[in-house]
Design a protein around this nucleic acid. Structure first.
Length: 628
RNA sequence: GCCUCGAUAGCUCAGCCUGGUAGAGCGGCUGCCUCGUAAGCAGCAGGCCGCGGGAUCAAAGCCCGCUCGAGGCUCCA
C-alpha cells in the first residue's frame, strides 16, 4: 500500500498558470502566470491513508535531500494524476498546507501552487541523476522507496528495451554470464567490462594524452572555437594526414568506392527529420537564408541520400561506399568532451555496405571485422591494446548461434557480449573495438553494425533476381574509428609503455621525424646536409639539429621528441663511413651501421605505408616553437 | 547539462588563507664556449594575474556572474 506520492523534479524554472476551477473546494487565486527559478518541484498526490506523521517524515527526508542537492527552494504542486487512490479534497488540502508549513519551519523557501485548479505549466528539468525522482512514503514499513519516474513513460519504455544482459563469449564460442566468468589473465577485458557495466572510476589528473599532444606539438585546444574543436600543429597534421590516407587506401583496396558528400543538411528534408526526431538533438545548428540546417554527425545522410538516387541490383552487391568525413560534428554535452578522446568535430572514416539479405550481410560483417582488426594492427594497435564487444538482440542470437560461435572462435580471445531482449537501436548486431586508457576509461575505435531500418526510411532499394524492388540491409563500419581517437589511443599506449619502463614512441611510419642528424660541431653541418639528401631521397623524414647548443642537449631534445633514430656525425663517422645510430626501439643503444643498412632497415619497417615529407623546415634552427 | 576543482610570463608552477611594489625554473633572444650520445656559462627581454561586475582608500588575492580546462555524474544514435 503506497501513499503520499511525490514526484520530485529539480528544474531550472517552472512557469504555471491557473486556468479553471476544477472543484468547489478550489482555493481562491488569480489567473496569473507565475515563474519560479532554480527550484525543486514536488508534484504531489495526497492519498486516502495519508496523515500528518507521514507529512512530517516526508519533509524530514526532503530537507536532507535538498541539502545534498544544494537547493533551498521548493514548489508544492498538487498533481492528482499520480494516484488512483486519492484522498478527499478537504484532507488533501489540509495536508498540503501542512507540508507547506513544515517546510517553512525548516527554513526552506516554499511556494505552493493553488489546489483544485487545472493549471497550465512549462518546466525545464535539470540533467543530473538526482533531478528526477519519485518518492512514495509507506505506512506499514517505515521505508522510503526511490525509483525512476514512470511519468516520462516513453523514456522508460526505451530503457526497458535497452536493459542489457552481459556475458563473456569465450574463444570456444560459449556464452558465459559475466558473473560466472573467471577473468584471470584477461585484465584488460575485466576493466572494459567493468567500465561498460558500472562505469565506475576515480582519477583526478590530466589525461596523459592531453599533456603529450601539446608537448609533442601535435594538437592543442582552441579557445577561439567551441569546446572539442581542436587545433592541429604541423606534426599533428602530418600524423593525421598519414592515418587518413592509410585508412582510405585500405578501404579502396577492400573494394569500397570513395565519395564525398555535404557537411550540412536541411532539417526539413523528410527522411532526415524522421531520423533526427528519433534521437535527442545533439547537432550543431545553423541558419542561412531562412533555412534551418544541421551539421552531419556521420556520413550516413550523404551516402543514404546518394544511394536513394542510385540504381543498383543484386549483381553489384554487396555495394560498398566509403567517405572520410572531415569533419563529422556531434555537439556532445560540455562535460563529455575531453582531449582527443571525445570531440565535437572529428574525422570519421565511414563505410557502408548495402547487402541483399542477412546471409550476405553476415558474410560481409565477418570480412569487415577481419579488415578492421588488420587496420588497427597496422596502425600500431595490437590485440592486447583493445577489447571487442559484440552486441545483439536476443532474437538474433537465437537464430544465429552458430554464426556467433564461429565469430568468437575466429577471433581467439574472449569478448564482452551485450544482449538486449528487444531491438531499440536501428541495428540487430554490432561489434566494437575498445581501447582502455591510463585512466581505465574505454573508448570505442572500430565498429560495424547491421542496420535493418534505414534502407526503408531513406527509400533505398535494389532490384533482385526476380526483378522486384527490395530494401537492402546496410552495414555501417568505421574501420579505425575517428582518426583523432586513434591518435589518442597511440599516445595513451605510449604512456602505458613508459609506465612499464619502455621508451614511449609513435609507430615509425607516423613519427614526424624518423631520423635526426646531429653534427658534433658547426664544422660538420655540410657533411650532415649531404647525408640528409640521400636519406630524404629514399622517402624517409630526416631533419638536422643545427642549433647553437651542446651535443648532450641535442640528444636529450631528440629523445624528448621521441625521434626513433638519432645519428651523431663527427670526424669518426666522416672518416670511417659508418654511422653511429641511436635506436630508440632498441633501448636507445648506439649501433654502428652503414647508411644503406639504415635505409633498408627503415624501409622494411614502413613498407606499404603512406609517406609524406617533413611537415617543418629541415633545419631545427628555422623552426618556430608552437608550444612550450 | 549538474556537482567539485582549476586558470598568474611562450610552457610548468609558487604567491591567494591573513588585500598594500608580480616571483621561480624551463623556453626565447644576445654573448662566450665548438663540444662524442638525456640539461655548458653569463646577461637581457617577456605579465590586462582568463573575461566582466561588486564591496574596499586600495584586489592576482574577498564576493557574484561568465568563458575555458580537468574529475565525477550523465551521455556516447
Amino acid at each position: 500500500m503506497k501513499i503520499m506520492q511525490i514526484l520530485q523534479l529539480h528544474s531550472n524554472f517552472i512557469v504555471f498558470k491557473p486556468i479553471k476551477k476544477e472543484i468547489n473546494l478550489a482555493e481562491e487565486t488569480k489567473k496569473e502566470e507565475k515563474k519560479i527559478e532554480q527550484v525543486l518541484v514536488l508534484f504531489t498526490a495526497v492519498e486516502k491513508e495519508d496523515n500528518i506523521s507521514l507529512v512530517n517524515r516526508a519533509i524530514e527526508e526532503l530537507h536532507i535531500f535538498l541539502k545534498n542537492l544544494k537547493v533551498n527552494r521548493i514548489l508544492i504542486y498538487p498533481f492528482a494524476h499520480l494516484s488512483n487512490n486519492l484522498a478527499k479534497p478537504r484532507n488533501a488540502l489540509k495536508l498540503l498546507k501542512e507540508m507547506e508549513k513544515k517546510a517553512k519551519n525548516k527554513g526552506i523557501e516554499t511556494f505552493r501552487a493553488p489546489f483544485g485548479w487545472t493549471k497550465q505549466f512549462t518546466i525545464a528539468i535539470k540533467g543530473h541523476p538526482l533531478a528526477e525522482q519519485s518518492r512514495s512514503y509507506l505506512l506499514a514499513e517505515k521505508k522510503e522507496i526511490s525509483k525512476k519516474e514512470e511519468i516520462i513513460s516513453k523514456a522508460l519504455k526505451a530503457e526497458q528495451k535497452l536493459r542489457s544482459f552481459w556475458h563473456i563469449l569465450d574463444s570456444n564460442g560459449s556464452l558465459i554470464p559475466i558473473e560466472d566468468f573467471k577473468f584471470g589473465g584477461y585484465k584488460n577485458l575485466e576493466l572494459f567490462s567493468k567500465y561498460e557495466i558500472t562505469k565506475a572510476r576515480a582519477s583526478c589528473e590530466m589525461p596523459p594524452h592531453v599533456t603529450l599532444m601539446k608537448r609533442l606539438e601535435i594538437a592543442d585546444y582552441e579557445e577561439g572555437s567551441d569546446p572539442g574543436n581542436i587545433r592541429w600543429y604541423p606534426k599533428g597534421r602530418l600524423i593525421k594526414s598519414l592515418l587518413e590516407q592509410f585508412v582510405t587506401e585500405k578501404m579502396i583496396n577492400y573494394g569500397a568506392m570513395e565519395v564525398e558528400t555535404p557537411i550540412m543538411y536541411d532539417f526539413k528534408h523528410p527522411s532526415l527529420s524522421d531520423y533526427l526526431n528519433r534521437f535527442p538533438a545533439r547537432q550543431y545548428l545553423l541558419n542561412s537564408e531562412d533555412k534551418d540546417l544541421f551539421l552531419r554527425f556521420s556520413a550516413c545522410f550523404g551516402q543514404f541520400l546518394m544511394l536513394h538516387d542510385t540504381q543498383f541490383s543484386y549483381k553489384q552487391m554487396p555495394l560498398k561506399v566509403y567517405e572520410l568525413t572531415r569533419y563529422s560534428f556531434r555537439r556532445e554535452k560540455s562535460g563529455e568532451v575531453c582531449g582527443l578522446r571525445r570531440l565535437r568535430a572529428f574525422t570519421m572514416p565511414d563505410c557502408h555496405a548495402f547487402c541483399t539479405d542477412l546471409d550476405q550481410a553476415k558474410k560481409e560483417f565477418e570480412t569487415r571485422f577481419k579488415l578492421s582488426i588488420e587496420v588497427l594492427n597496422e596502425i600500431g594497435l595490437t590485440k592486447e591494446d583493445f577489447e571487442i564487444a559484440l552486441r545483439f538482440t536476443k532474437d538474433f542470437y537465437e537464430e544465429n548461434k552458430d554464426f556467433v560461435k564461429k565469430f568468437a572462435k575466429s577471433y581467439g580471445k574472449p569478448l564482452l557480449v551485450e544482449l538486449w531482449k528487444e531491438r531499440f537501436f536501428y541495428f540487430r548486431l554490432k561489434w566494437d573495438a575498445n581501447f582502455i586508457d591510463n585512466q581505465k576509461k574505454a573508448a570505442a575505435l572500430s565498429t560495424d553494425q547491421i542496420d535493418v531500418e534505414n534502407a526503408k526510411r531513406y527509400k533505398i532499394s535494389y532490384v533482385n533476381e526476380r526483378g522486384e524492388k527490395k530494401h537492402p540491409l546496410i552495414l555501417h563500419c568505421s574501420p579505425s574509428g575517428a582518426i583523432e581517437r586513434v591518435i589518442y589511443a597511440l599516445l595513451e599506449k605510449a604512456h602505458k609503455n613508459q609506465q612499464k619502463g619502455k621508451s614511449p614512441m609513435l609507430p615509425l611510419w607516423l613519427s614526424p621525424t624518423q631520423v635526426r642528424l646531429i653534427p658534433i660541431s658547426d664544422d660538420y653541418i655540410e657533411n650532415v646536409v649531404e647525408l640528409s639528401e640521400t636519406i630524404a631521397s629514399n622517402a624517409i623524414r630526416v631533419d638536422i639539429d643545427d642549433k647553437a647548443s651542446t651535443l648532450p642537449k641535442k640528444v636529450r631534445e631528440a629523445e624528448k621528441e621521441w625521434v626513433p633514430y638519432i645519428i651523431v656525425v663527427g670526424p669518426k663517422e666522416v672518416e670511417s663511413g659508418t654511422l653511429s645510430v641511436r635506436d630508440r626501439e632498441n633501448n636507445r643503444k648506439v649501433e654502428k651501421m652503414k647508411l644503406s643498412e639504415l635505409i633498408s632497415k627503415i624501409q622494411t619497417k614502413i613498407q606499404n605505408k603512406p609517406f609524406k615529407p617533413l611537415p617543418l623546415p629541415q633545419k631545427l634552427s628555422k623552426r618556430p616553437q608552437f608550444y612550450g
